[in-house]
């Protein structure tokens, strides 16, 4: 008997004959109802405000700009404020490369000790101040983990209230290879419980929150 058979038959010997799959699915769905009673309330009525408050509370810095055209300037402002050279490793996605990067040199490659990288979040989650990224041709995962400064563009239009709203947007048979919720800069409390930023991932997380359609 294989280990698989041994494990499954041990379980069945204890649990007895199972219910039909559709009944189990109904039971599972009901476990999440009513959804509001078991999750925290948003900290502000407007999603951008709620997101910004939550993100700031965990050490993410925020710059709110209107329109995507304002993104390169906001990125340049950030680099300058941190004394960084005007260079960025940039996620190879058309929404970002289509912008006018005059003054900044974007690169689709990322070095192991890259000072700063810029990416685009698929969604933001207001409940927790989290950013969602998915792996794919336009998004190397290491872009979000190798740099010391991680700058993320987030469109207000892509803000979701709760974690469940993100889950609802995933189609189970088409989940990405790697989905990551980023909630604040990398940190550790492993030495005497004292908090230190930038353990392995970025020590700085900066969100450019973009309002408007453009």
């Amino acid at each position: 008997m294989t280990a698989r058979d041994r494990i499954l038959s041990a379980i069945r010997a204890t649990l007895g004959p199972g219910k039909p799959a559709n009944e189990i699915a109904v039971e599972a769905a009901l476990l999440l109802e009513p959804v509001d009673t078991a999750r925290p309330a948003l900290v502000a009525p407007a999603l951008p405000d709620a997101f910004a408050q939550k993100a700031a509370a965990i050490g993410t810095t925020i710059d709110r700009v209107s329109g995507m055209a304002g993104v390169p300037q906001a990125a340049a402002r950030y680099l300058k404020a941190h004394g960084l050279p005007p260079r960025l490793a940039m996620q190879p996605t058309p929404e970002l490369s289509a912008l006018d990067w005059a003054g900044i040199t974007p690169s689709p490659q990322i070095a192991p000790d890259e000072p700063a990288a810029l990416g685009l979040a698929l969604w933001g989650i207001a409940e927790s101040g989290s950013l969602v990224i998915h792996s794919g041709p336009g998004n190397p995962i290491l872009m979000s983990f190798l740099p010391l400064h991680h700058i993320v563009v987030l469109r207000e239009a892509t803000l979701l209230p709760y974690l469940e709203d993100y889950a609802a947007r995933l189609s189970p048979q088409q989940v990405p290879r790697n989905a990551i919720l980023i909630t604040g800069p990398s940190g550790t409390t492993d030495i005497e419980g004292s908090y230190v930023r930038g353990a392995h991932g970025p020590g700085f997380l900066h969100v450019i929150l973009v309002s408007g359609a453009g």
């Binding site: 925290p40 939550k54 965990i58 927790s128 989290s130 989940v175 990405p176 290879r177 790697n178 989905a179 990551i180 919720l181 980023i182 909630t183 604040g184 800069p185 990398s186 940190g187 991932g201």
Partner: peptide, 11 residues
């Protein structure tokens, strides 16, 4: 905390 910094799904 409310969320860990990285919540990662691998498929």
């Amino acid at each position: 905390g409310e969320m860990t910094q990285y919540t990662t799904f691998h498929a």
